[in-house]
Design a protein around this nucleic acid. Sequence first.
DNA 1: CCACGATCCTGCTAGC
DNA 2: TGCTAGCAGGATCGTG
Length: 277
Amino acid sequence: MPELPEVETTVQQLRQVLPGRVIKGLVQVEWPKMFKTHQPQDLNRLIKGEQVLDVSRRAKFIILGLTNNKYVVFHRMMSGNLFFRDLSSPPDKYTRFVITFNDDTCLRFVDLRKFGRVFFFLKESNLATFFSKLGPEPLLSNFTFDSFSQILNTRNGILKSFLLNQQFIVGLGNIYANEVLFKSQLHPNRKVNSLDETERERLYTAIRQILEVAIENKGTTLSSYMDGGGQKGRNTELLNVHLRNNQECKICNSIITKILINQRSTYFCPTCQPMIN
DNA sequence: CCACGATCCTGCTAGC
DNA sequence: TGCTAGCAGGATCGTG
């Protein structure tokens, strides 16, 4: 899926076009399993006539805030995209459902692998409950080094797995976890509780820098990711390790190595990220 | 608490 | 050329 930078990019763009529009209906539902809280026909009835007030993000979820305290939440998982289109624009392949608006525009959920998910909530409190198990947002000011360090204190698993677990910190996926570890000069198989103060600081700083730069570049496009207007991200060429196995490290010319951690491909430089414990 | 595997899907590509 | 195994940006659930 899109990770935090790709979700944030989409949210910023949808925020410019969706607020103020009135929902006409939910149509062209061709994969009902994506709807996790309501049947599509019920959701159609619940959102019809409501106006979009705002578009926001929590972790990798995209939230449409509607009138009457209604919230539609999307998760794009691995291959999902949200495209704002005119009704008359050419069809997007792999469109799984469409939310239409009164002015003949629409929002298309396009998702090759059909892993994407849709949720609906009827009060902000229910939305908060839904998000309650998520860790902190790494780019918010309340994500301080001290708070991060406290989370690290309670863990003793593998570092890469820790970064991918949304209960501890949200927004990182496989690409950016690999890139963050490279920038931090930390081996992905390090134990979380083995990091000293300096290493924790490097990790904390890298998380924020990697994500911020990726957002500035409107995300990373590997194959299917596109932003809300159907544009590719520009961050791809900045990748230092992800998908670069058997290529030279841009810093030290060592050969980038690929290993598996939790069934996920993990790329690192054995020289810049030595295994010490 | 943690690790690991299976699962949900489709398409692309590397290798034979 | 044609087939197939393996892999892909994520998350959840069950088992040990």
